[in-house]
Computed example of a mutant assay.
Amino acid sequence: MKTYYKDFLIRDWQPGDRNPAAETISTVLAEYSIIFEPRGADIDVLEIETYYQETGGEFWVIEQEGKVVGTSGYYPVKRGEKSVEIRKMYLLPDVRGNGLGRYLLKELENAIANRGFQEIWIETASVLKEAVNLYERSGYQPTTGIETKRCDRIYIKKI
């Protein structure tokens, strides 16, 4: 994956992105008073190869002027029918509000559909208001079955 949105480069994760991606996610979580959990809910960010690449998923970083300013990814899950879960879709505060999140979600959906998946699941927290609004405006439907302790919302979209 390699694409551009305005002056942002969206590309496949590389091993050198491990710390910058984790730092980006940790920064966004702290903004919402959510603790980064390297041995819990966020272990997948430190083990991209195991959680994403080896399972048939993808993990992307978003760069602006050579700096990682966002992340996103998905991997197959056992719930549902030919399902994936979108994970770690985070953008630093200074790059929000210009359509990047909407573009990124659409690119994820296209990549997921092109791989033959039929359902997308997303877990999130109500405090992440921008994310909740984006998912709801993009056709994601509330459902049940939350698996991540810090999340209180779960959505599904059939594609």
Rank of each mutant, 00 (worst) to 15 (best):
D44E: 13
E47M: 03
I159D: 02
D42F: 05
Y75P: 00
S83R: 12
E136A: 08
I43K: 09
Q53R: 14
E130M: 06
D44M: 03
V28Y: 01
R153C: 14
R115S: 03
V69Y: 04
K149A: 13
E119K: 01
D17N: 12
S126F: 03
N133C: 08
S72M: 15
R39E: 05
S33H: 06
I35K: 11
D12N: 13
D44N: 10
F36H: 05
G97R: 06
G16F: 04
T27D: 01
K88L: 14
S126N: 06
K2G: 02
P142A: 08
V77T: 14
G139L: 02
F8L: 06
R11N: 07
Y4E: 08
F8I: 07
E109K: 00
A111L: 11
Y51A: 07
R39V: 05
T71V: 11
C151S: 15
K6E: 07
G16D: 05
R11G: 06
S83T: 11
G116C: 05
K106I: 10
D12F: 03
L108G: 01
Q14R: 15
C151L: 07
V61D: 00
E109F: 05
F59A: 02
N19R: 14
I34R: 00
I48K: 11
R11W: 00
Y140F: 15
S126H: 03
R39A: 00
E107T: 08
V61Q: 01
T27R: 10
L46A: 04
E49C: 06
W13H: 12
K2H: 12
K2R: 12
I34A: 03
K2N: 02
L91M: 02
L104M: 09
I122E: 06
R137V: 03
L9W: 03
E119M: 01
E109R: 01
K88N: 12
Y4A: 08
L104W: 04
A22D: 04
I120T: 07
L91P: 13
R79A: 09
Y135C: 05
C151A: 13
E58G: 04
Y32L: 08
V95E: 00
I86A: 06
G101Q: 03
